[in-house]
Amino acid sequence: MKNFSNRYIYIYSTVLVLVVATVLALVAVGLKPFQQKNIKAEQMQQLLSSAGIKVERNVAEENYNKYIVAEYTVNSNGEVIDEYSDGKQVKGSDRPFEINVKAQYKDFKAGKANEVKLPVYVCKKDNGEITYIVPVRGAGLWGDVWGNVALKSDLNTVEGVVFDHESETPGLGSKITDDPSFAQSFVNKTIFDGEKFTSVKVIKRVGTDNPHAVDALSGATLTSNGVSAMIEDCLKFYLPYFKTLKK
């Protein structure tokens, strides 16, 4: 091996770092639009899917613009903070779709419910029916679980749900995403018993008759519990808003 002077080593490492940093910055900037498009399209696809509109990811955006007629953010008192509809900002300054739901829920869990605002999406289907979609988020067994719950215009009956997760056990807990029959079991359940909020619970061997509960996944009790708690906690946040809507 040759001997290298200290000066050579310094220059060598500086040049190396500069070259690497420049190329990486170019790559990152160049690919960023594609990555963001993926994330956005997935989010839109999941919102539509919870309302029963299944579309491929590459056409998610155009369908989203077609079916989602309004986006709101609401606070824990049920007041509307922002509104975005027909492609423009009507009220407030943030587009509800771009709200960082994860960060908002974190504040919500930390007891800062007064500062939190969360989105509501209004979807108008082909047959003219109105559906309200709200995002939900919580903790599963290993990591976060999240999803969307779509309610029919009576704000009681579940139109559909979609769940996703960070790292639930593949083949067991991951069924909340992979197994369509789990999401299907939520359809037509109701979240109110008369005036009382009951949520839709996920309980072991509850059968199909209970209007406020669905069967838990076998072998994934803790993921199921997480989903159950997530739906209850998050819907609670929206109750004041639903109340104002019903009036």
Binding site: M1, S13, V20, V27, L31, N38
Partner: peptide, 25 residues
């Protein structure tokens, strides 16, 4: 330079891995 060869290798490898990661994303 042999004295910094491990770090040079690490830089090259992580450079490539970041590219792979970005492309996958």
């Amino acid at each position: 330079p042999p004295r910094i060869r491990i770090i040079v290798q690490l830089v090259v490898v992580s450079f490539l891995v970041i590219i792979v990661d970005q492309v996958l994303k």
